[in-house]
Nucleic acid binder design. Sequence first.
DNA 1: GCGACAG
DNA 2: ATCTTGTCGC
Length: 219
Amino acid sequence: MHTGDWPKTAEEARAVQERLRDLVDLTDDLPALPPTVTGLDVAYDESDGIAAAVVTLETAGLTVVEARTHRAKAVFPYEPGLFAFRELPPLLAALEGLAHTPDVLVCDGHGLAHPRRFGLACHLGVLTGLPAFGVGKTRFVGTHDEPEQARGSSAPLADAGEEVGAVLRTQDGVKPVYVSAGHRIGLAHACRLTLALTPRYRLPETTRQADRLSRAALR
DNA sequence: GCGACAG
DNA sequence: ATCTTGTCGC
């Protein structure tokens, strides 16, 4: 579906981000608790082989509704800030295989918490037109205070004077995650959904399921 | 100039 | 991302 016009150089990729960033819509029309949540992740092997997985869960109960995987060869090298150009192709292919349109995408990476405010979650949201937000495991940009130790506590993530996300504690005393809006959803809503997806573990159940499936698909 | 740097 | 032994705790 995206064969042909994919950036070849870092310069071209950054230009694409600068051009698409204006298409990000932060209007939030998503129900407080959408019927389903769809997680995405990509696994890699030692020779440019990659496997993407998308898993849709019922929001209440977190049971799997459907899942899809897609294997491919990496077409773009990893570079901080341009990460989406590496994972987007297989992720989009996997998404196209779903029988049901996702209500919201939960990405393994950042959205607005990006140097040019256009991380994977924004890119995926703009290209699919679907609501999307990011839940990163580590900080990429910005500074923040340490959130309180209780699950649900959070601290603003600021970069260059802008609030680009939140550092959210999903379990008592565990390392917090980095939540940021991607497209068609607000930060507060993204944080509430993240908590709904982490009743037991640090990472969202969507990410855990997608991670497991992508690794399995790689072999 | 010197670090930092999503996955 | 992925590579890895042991270790602490429920």
